[in-house]
């Protein structure tokens, strides 16, 4: 069952001279099990948008529906909603606070009212999902590497067993190895656990190689909502929005201008490689 946003508008400081229209008529449907990337420049409204999905912000008008139910209706259990729609903020490792990894990850389920044993069971499962073995459980979260800390923080949200996992720039500040580590974890969560992953990112390369659907937020509107190949086709518009396309997309366009007939819609290194090899193998050839 999906999360839906229907004609959602959001205004900051409504009714004052400082009023800012942050979201305008947003319509969106996210099904269980999807893998979505949200891109948009700083201040485009994407963080505001994701905070509507678990009820942290309340729409000024319009509705947010979870499985068809209005999450702001009287009597709706929003506490439970926040367990189902997990939100991992930017630099989540800043929110680690316990003395050891396992206790930190237990915090969420304990807070949901589970017993110590149940909480620990959920925490172990969550740590397993992010690929942290038992040898890490008793270590201080502060002694881990950047990527490991972030995996602990993500496990903290996973321990609440969400159906949807939203992450705000989960790879910011990580080295390339750490970036791959986190993206690998997210791919696994999506594939093996069937969790819907919604990823906010400033890295077009990361988004292109992981998600199935991209939502482009521009000035509080949804400008595009399509698979990566289709979205990055509009790279010129994306640039005017403060975004870009992956480097390989630019390479493909440059090659086509030189008369090498590669697929203009490639978005990953693998796709670009195949397309270039194919084009150079002689089919539909022409001269530079």
């Amino acid at each position: 069952m999906p999360i839906e946003m229907k004609q959602v508008n959001f205004l900051y400081q409504a009714g004052t001279p400082m009023e800012v229209h942050v979201l305008t008529d947003v319509n969106l449907k996210i099904e269980k099990g999807e893998f979505i990337g949200i891109i948009g420049h700083t201040g485009s409204g994407k963080s505001t948008l994701i905070q509507h999905l678990n009820g942290l912000l309340r729409a000024s008008s319009g509705q947010v529906l979870m499985d068809g139910e209005d999450i702001f209706a009287d009597g709706y259990d929003r506490r439970k909603l926040r367990g189902r729609v997990g939100l991992v903020f930017q630099y989540p490792e800043h929110q680690l606070f316990e003395t050891d990894v396992l206790t930190d990850v237990c915090f969420g389920p304990k807070n949901q009212g589970f017993s110590k044993e149940e909480a620990e069971k959920k925490a172990r499962a969550a740590l397993d999902m992010v690929g942290l073995p038992e040898s890490f459980y008793q270590r201080s979260p502060f002694e881990l590497s950047g990527g490991q800390k972030r995996r602990v923080a993500i496990a903290g949200v996973l321990a609440m067993e969400p159906d949807y996992l939203i992450l705000d720039e989960p790879t910011a500040g990580l080295d390339p190895g750490g970036r791959d580590e986190i993206l690998g974890v997210l791919k696994d969560l999506h594939k093996k656990q069937g969790i819907a992953v919604i990823l906010v990112s400033h890295s077009m390369e990361d988004v292109a190689q992981t998600v199935e659907r991209i939502i482009v937020v521009q000035n509080g509107h949804i400008a595009y909502d399509a698979p990566p190949r289709e979205v990055f086709r509009h790279y010129k518009e994306l640039e005017s929005y403060g975004l870009s396309a992956p480097q390989v997309t630019y390479i493909a366009h440059a090659l086509r201008e030189k008369g090498i007939p590669v697929d203009p819609d490639v978005t990953t290194v693998e796709e670009a490689k195949q397309s270039i090899l194919h084009a150079l193998s002689g089919k539909g050839g022409s001269v530079c």
């Binding site: 080295d175 390479i251 440059a254 290194v269």
Partner: peptide
Amino acid sequence: HLGVPQVTELAYELRKEGLPLPEGILTI
């Protein structure tokens, strides 16, 4: 734990497939 620019990675992958490209290509 580091990487290379995406264009360098693509060139590297193409070299592995046997295309005679020089090492260390850095720009589109």
